[in-house]
Structure formats: structure tokens, C-alpha cells
Amino acid sequence: MRPFTYERPTDARTAVSAVSRSGAKFISGGTNLLDLMKLDIEHPSHLIDISRLPMRDIEELPDGGLRIGAQAVNSDVAADDRVRTRYPVLSQALVSGASGQLRNKASTGGNLLQRTRCPYFYDTAAGCNKRDPGSGCSAIGGFNRIHAVLGASDACIATHPSDMAVAMTALEAEIELLDAEGSVRRVVITDFYRLPGDTPHLETVLRPGELITGVILPPPPPGRQLYRKVRDRASYEFALVSVAAVVSTERGMISEARVAFGGVAHKPWRSFEAEAALIGRPAEMATYRDAARAAMRDAVGQGHNDFKIELARRTLCRTLAQAARSS
């Protein structure tokens, strides 16, 4: 048996000092970690339950932004009036994820840190550099329909499964981190995640012992926000491709734009290329097609997932057209 110990600290400082112990891991909603433990992919020897830390609030910030406590559950964030009116792309992304039951348990911090759904990551009989560094990538040359087309490496072609993080990427959210010494730092979400490179087992820039305490949403960018998730079935499935878009137009010209993709890369994929192709151009389909081409210029398919490149282009075009029309 793999025994583990469990504690439930009541404040963040105690939590971060507890996690310094070897084999220790935070657990919140447990919607991903418990599965991974049962499947022998994660084997912590000590669990620190942070789900009841006083970090569930969503607070107004003086600059007009919001601070979402790391333990706020996905359902609550999605239903928050301020989120719904000022950050609809985030609310839409959250409700498109998982199921009602899972959203009721899953925390904001945990959602950011969920692991890939690559089937080979879950199959301990298969090689996987993310699960077992150096053991190879079975998805390359295997069944890779859900895998990455951007930013992948020879070591890993897994995707990040979160919807929430894609919307947060378009919103330029910052992740607030607390370390064992009690110091707090903030990391912009695009810098928070790593590309796989040679070290796909390292997924974020989190330092050992750091705890996510909250997510800072800057004041909402101007324009219309939209999240569009494409998948085989109507609910309870990870995105094949998703797009978070924010588009602002003035007299038919795009004045500002944010574009992030989900389901295409090891991290939520902010497409600065697409944004550059949009800003200052007419809000019309030709522009969106240029942006889609720019976004996917470096995309590489692995066989089964080749269609994702065209699917991402088409989804972006449609999402931009829809956002621009009503902005």
C-alpha cells in the first residue's frame, strides 16, 4: 500500500511551510490529483489540504480589476456577477469545462495546475517523458488526435486541458504566489506555463514550496469578449480547439485585440501573431483569415491531429467575426 499522511492547515503560511516536506503536495478539489494517485501517476506521501484556506473570495481591486482567491471554486467564479459582466470570456470558459459536479469541487488554483489528458500520460505501461522523464513520447507516432500543433517538442506533444486558463491568458491575468518565507510574487499567466522543450515534466515556473494564493484580473480590456470551445460532444469533453478572443473596433477598424487558443499547445496559447495581424485592420473576414494564418504559421500536425490546424483557423475566424460584429 502507498500510505500518505494528510493535514488541513487553517492558514496559508502553515500550508507553505508544510509543503517543504519531501513528497508533500497540496490538494484542493482533488478532481485531478485523486485520479492520478489511483492510477499510480502521482504518489505523494503527504497531502496538505488547502481547500478550506480562507481564499475563496472574489475581491474588487482599486484599478477596476478583480482578485480571485485561489480556492474559489469554478462554479462560483463562473456565476459571479462581476465576472459575468466584466469578464464574460472567463465565465463562458468555466462553464464549458468539465461537468457541474466537477466545477463545484475544482478550485481556481487547481484548475491552473491540472495535468494533461494525453492518454499515454495515463498509461503507465507506455513511455511518457512527462510522467517518467527519459522514457520517450508514445504520442509521437501513436494516437495523437488531441495533441499539440504549436510549441511542441520531440519530447512531448501534450496539451494543457484547461478552458479557464485560456480565457485568463486572453485577459492577461497574473498568478499570485506565496513562498515559504512569506514573500509574494506575481507572474503573468503567459510566463507561468512552460513549453515542453526537453523537460515536459516541468509545466510551470512554480518554485518548490510555492502556493497559488490568487489570480489577478487586470481591468477588462475594451471590446467584446468571447470563448468558443470546439469538441466532439456537446458537454463533458476537453477542447479539441478553443479560442478566447477580445476584439474592440472603432469605425470598422480593429483597435485592440486579444487572442488565445486552448487545446493546441502545452500551455494556453496567446497568439501575439494573430493580434498583430488584427490591430489597425478592417474588421472583416479577410483580416480574420490573415490573423488565422498568422496564428497557425508555425503549426505542425502529428498525423491524427492535423485537422486541428484548419479547425483552429476556422474557429478563430468565426469567433473574431462574432466578437467584432457586436463590439
Binding site: 489528458r117 492518454p119 498509461d123 501513436g142 460532444r233 456537446a234 463533458y236
Partner: peptide
């Protein structure tokens, strides 16, 4: 080996379908 060995990956209709 069968690759998609769970009901998150082996898709069957959900209510919304």
C-alpha cells in the same frame, strides 16, 4: 493496446447530446 481506455476519452453521448 487500446489507447482511450476511459469514459472521458471513449466518448458516449452525454445528456446534452
Amino acid at each position: 493496446a487500446f489507447v482511450n481506455r476511459d469514459l472521458a476519452q471513449y466518448l458516449v453521448p452525454v445528456h446534452a447530446d
